[in-house]
Design a protein around this nucleic acid. Structure first.
Lengths: 175, 175
DNA sequence: CGATTCATGTAACTTGTTACATGATTAG
DNA sequence: CTAATCATGTAACAAGTTACATGAATCG
């Protein structure tokens, strides 16, 4: 059975412990969203499909609120493990900041501005991720991924700053 | 007028020199595709819209083949400059490799495998970009973006290698 | 003359977002 | 009591990909 990576986000979350669709969305928003986002419009229909396929099982949770908790079935766990063993394929980036830098020759000061703006954007992400880390972030591999996010965005912010400084210097020299 | 970033890819390409839709697609495929892809299914309808909006002008090129060349109009150039001056907003990543690392605890050896696989993926991109650079890459800001791509992917490949090595070491120590 | 490249386009499909509708429960 | 949060869902829309159709010009 061929599942979308978004389906594996759900299976992966449920591999930790049973959760509702609402919980999954909240979990995505403070973790995978930085490298794989998902909205309610995807999550609830996908829960239905995974349930129909027997990869997850629904259970009405008793207690206070009416909610449906899903748990991974043995078949679902096998499916998740199978996916983990495959080579990753999807890697997509949509970076408007790089696009502006790429076309910056169309406007005199656009290059330095684009570099500075992109640097700010990455610094902002670093700040968000550091806050997650400070609030007692996740453990194990999820923590490694958080570290990757922090270090990668720090690297990018530093590259922007360095390149902007070089550009400014060469412009001063030309004048 | 609100245009999509994909529309600015077209305006940006035309800011260099007049081109056909086919040329734009070829240009995207060896440059912006790494951070902003575009297919014929987007390019041709968008050329029509931009032409209707007066931001580009079509001209039937004489000579051998029948083709339509588009050039940036003065209004189109203003539009492009205006966009360059705005803060970039869209930054989206879909990284299946990170997703596998994130959920790697569901399978014993998945962590190291995911790191190694992601490292290979980044090394592969570095190789592709180096080939573009060797074949006399672009000039100016476009070259800076190429360097960014090379260095960023090198950084990521190195991070994966380093983290995999640390993980292997700590696993040996635990045993 | 046959294969490749140039060249333009569209229809069907997939994926994902946004906004809305609905309502119960809990915290202050 | 009322505001926030929990909770589930869908419909309309936007964006983007894939595959196909079509045909002319050029290269070997």
């Amino acid at each position: 059975m061929e599942l979308s990576p978004t389906a594996y986000v759900i299976l992966g979350m449920l591999s930790w412990h049973p959760m509702s669709g609402y919980d999954i969305k909240a979990g995505v928003d403070k973790s995978t969203r930085f490298f794989w986002a998902a909205s309610y419009g995807q999550i609830y229909p996908e829960l239905r499909r995974l349930s129909d396929a027997g990869l997850i099982e629904a259970e009405q949770a008793e207690g206070g609120r009416k909610r449906t908790e899903y748990r991974l079935s043995p078949a679902g766990r096998r499916q998740l493990r199978g996916w983990l063993a495959e080579e990753p394929t999807t890697f997509e980036l949509r970076d408007e900041g790089l696009l502006k830098l790429f076309f910056a020759s169309a406007s005199p000061s656009a290059g330095i501005e684009a570099l500075r703006a992109k640097g700010r954007q990455h610094s902002q992400v670093v700040a968000e991720l550091r806050e997650i880390e400070a609030g007692g972030g996740p453990e194990g591999f999820a923590y490694q991924v958080l570290r990757y996010g922090i270090e990668c965005n720090e690297w990018a912010a530093a590259w922007c700053e360095r390149t902007a400084a070089e550009l400014e210097r060469s412009q001063r020299e030309a004048a």
